[in-house]
Amino acid sequence: MTFFTKMRGAGTRPPRVGAAEIGWSFLGAAAGIAAVAFLHERVADPAGLSMLIGSFGASAVLLYGAPKSPLAQPRNLIGGHVLSALVGVTVRLAIASPDWLACSLAVALAIAVMHATGTLHPPGGATALIAVTGGPKILALGYLYVLFPVLSGALIMLLVAVVAVNAAPNRRYPEYWL
């Protein structure tokens, strides 16, 4: 018997979801990302701001694909992103070099802050990392990054999640607000 077969649950698979769940997840994610992208294209980008960051793709997986997850609840979504953005910008401003140190501290501190505040949201780690490694447009935002794209985009995705998830007959979001 190998190590992997001795592991608890070895040989079993997680339960699969049905076609309806896949369809509702697809529709919610498409609507949430479309709303943020549309507002980015029409409002934010012409004003020299950004509303799109990669970590929103991971948030979409949680919000629309696993809306019952504690990590997908509003407190975690908003708090996790905003606190991680604050940490990321602060680290970037405090440690300009070496990059490896700024990157590692931004992510590690973001995780610690999210844990300490009860706002753990895994995409928040990417939000902190983007604050440090983002292109010139993101880096030029400074603390404005916390508002645009982070807070504004997360709030839009939250509003879409409340509508899209609750449109499905057997789905409910949020499980709790705070």
Rank of each mutant, 00 (worst) to 15 (best):
H121F: 01
G118F: 04
A44V: 13
F26M: 14
F3C: 00
S25P: 11
G118M: 07
Y176V: 06
I130D: 05
G54K: 01
M51N: 06
M114F: 03
G54N: 02
I130F: 06
T5M: 01
P174T: 10
A19P: 04
R16T: 13
A154L: 01
C103E: 13
P74T: 10
L178S: 10
V162Y: 01
A20D: 07
A108W: 03
W24F: 15
L158G: 00
W24N: 07
T117P: 07
I130Q: 03
V36N: 03
T127G: 08
A116C: 05
R172N: 13
A30Y: 08
M51W: 15
G134K: 09
K68C: 06
L27P: 11
V91S: 04
I22P: 02
E21A: 15
G23D: 01
L49A: 10
S84L: 03
L63Q: 02
R42N: 09
G134I: 03
L141R: 14
P15T: 05
G134V: 04
M114C: 09
N170H: 14
G134P: 09
A85L: 08
L151A: 11
F26E: 05
K137F: 05
V89L: 06
L39H: 04
L155K: 03
P149K: 05
S104D: 06
S55F: 02
F4K: 00
S25G: 15
G11E: 08
A131K: 05
S25M: 02
T5W: 06
G11T: 05
I111Y: 14
H115K: 11
R8T: 15
A131G: 08
A112H: 09
P74L: 08
L105A: 12
M7C: 07
F38Q: 11
A19K: 05
G134C: 11
A128H: 10
P15G: 07
L62F: 13
L93N: 10
L129K: 07
L155P: 04
I33C: 01
L49K: 04
R13D: 09
G9L: 14
A126K: 07
G135I: 06
A112T: 12
G142A: 12
V61D: 00
R172Q: 13
P74W: 11
A108N: 06
Y64Q: 01
A10V: 03
P46N: 03
F38S: 12
I156F: 02
A10M: 03
L39W: 08
C103S: 15
K68H: 15
G118V: 04
A161R: 02
A96I: 09
L49D: 06
K68G: 14
H115T: 10
G80N: 02
A161C: 03
L120V: 15
A19G: 09
G80S: 03
I33K: 00
A164I: 02
V91Q: 06
E41G: 15
A154D: 01
I22K: 10
G88Y: 14
